[in-house]
Amino acid sequence: MHQGLIADIAAAGLLPHPTHDSVRTILVSPLHHSEGPSADSLARLVDELDQALCACPAVADLSGRTIIALDNGSGDVCYERPDLGAVAQPNGSWMILLAAAPTPLTCAQNHLVEILAAAAQYYAEFPRQQWRMVDEEQCRETILMQLREHYSRQLTELKDADVSLPPRFQPTAGITADTVVATIPFGRMTAEAAQELAGFGYSVRFTPWHSVAIYGVSAAARDDLCTALTRLGMSVDPRHPANWISACGGQPGCRRAHADVRGDAWQQMHSSDYQPGVRIHYVGCARRCGHPNAQHWERLATAQGEYVETLMDADGRTPVTSGGHQLHEL
């Protein structure tokens, strides 16, 4: 590859970090929250946290499945089962998250990066046996103890009654003030669509929910933008099935998959019997990749050529119903 091109890509920040790229998955609330920090403030926090993580040799050993969340108080990314993170509080402080749950520890925003980087280091130093913190016995309690021991001056402890998350909120497609949110079926966008989206000249942010938030859209430009997004295969309709139907990679890309689950999910999206608001996730094998972090109907392809449908809890592993039933042959 031409060295000048490599230099340009590196200058744009698009090259993976040589040692720490697996621990740079930081989810951030995409929409403004009236009682939360500004978008610029959140962006600075992300940059500072990313730099702090990359400067810590220990965290390079964490799993690529590690998720860090910065929730601006909306109640969105804090429900994505993060290993660690924080939720902005109305008084300007941040409540620390560990193992997908709130803790009684809060800190001022100017200490947040330091606290989260320390928590990530403690997590890396814990004798881990699982991919995720939520599956590690005693890990959360050990990190809480270490934070209390080493950062008592920076931390404030809440009463148990005050330890809670804001009500859950998941942005769906639609228009809010000067922001347009468009759903991307299965989260897949062609290179041509990405180039055209960039060419519109707006600031954009991709979300964890197979959508893109487009900022600074004037009322006069909305209709033309929405028309262009539809032409590119996206939707700004909050009732579009792509808001609720998802799938793992499936065949032919995954050798473990028993079916072309995205093809079947696509057919479901365009069937007349689908009821908007019913969350369905198609999976090609028992690994259940890509499941929503919310209660959903799972359609699991089997080696016997059928789908088994089961109502699953948010963890993607625990059935809410007593058992599945065969839906149809593949």
Rank of each mutant, 00 (worst) to 15 (best):
Tyr202Trp: 14
Trp209Lys: 01
Leu197Asp: 13
Thr190Gln: 10
Thr227Leu: 07
Ala198His: 07
Gly201Tyr: 04
Ser164Leu: 13
Ser164Pro: 00
Asp223Asn: 08
Thr179Leu: 15
Val180Glu: 07
Arg168Ala: 10
Ser218Tyr: 11
Ala182Ile: 00
Val212Asp: 01
Asp160Gly: 07
Ser211Met: 02
Ala219Tyr: 00
Lys159Tyr: 06
Gln195Ile: 12
Thr183Ala: 11
Gly199Ile: 08
Ala194Gln: 11
Thr156Arg: 12
Leu197Phe: 05
Asp160Cys: 00
Gly174Glu: 08
Phe169Lys: 14
Ala193Pro: 07
Pro167Phe: 06
Ala220Asn: 07
Ala228Glu: 12
Ala220Arg: 05
Arg222Ile: 15
Thr176Leu: 04
Glu196Gln: 14
Val181Thr: 14
Ala219Gln: 13
Leu229Pro: 01
Trp209Val: 04
Gly233Cys: 06
Met234Ile: 01
Thr190Leu: 15
Arg222Tyr: 02
Ala220Gly: 06
Val212Cys: 09
Ile175Glu: 03
Thr179Gly: 09
Thr207Arg: 09
Arg168Asn: 04
Phe200Gln: 15
Gln170Phe: 12
Met189Lys: 07
Gly199Phe: 00
Lys159Pro: 03
Leu197Gln: 06
His210Gln: 15
Ser235Leu: 08
Leu158Val: 12
Phe186Asp: 08
Val204Ser: 12
Ala228Asn: 08
Val181Arg: 10
Arg168Gly: 02
Val163Leu: 06
Leu158Gln: 14
Asp178Phe: 00
Val180Tyr: 12
Met234Gln: 09
Met189Ile: 15
Phe206Pro: 00
Pro171Phe: 07
Glu157Met: 13
Gly201Pro: 05
Phe206His: 13
Ala219His: 04
Pro185Met: 04
Arg188Pro: 00
Gly216Arg: 00
Leu165Cys: 02
Val236Pro: 14
Gly201Leu: 12
Leu229Ile: 05
Tyr215Pro: 05
Glu157Val: 15
Met189Asp: 02
Asp224Gly: 03
Arg205Gly: 08
Phe200Gly: 04
Pro185Arg: 10
Thr230Ile: 05
Val212His: 01
Gly216Ala: 00
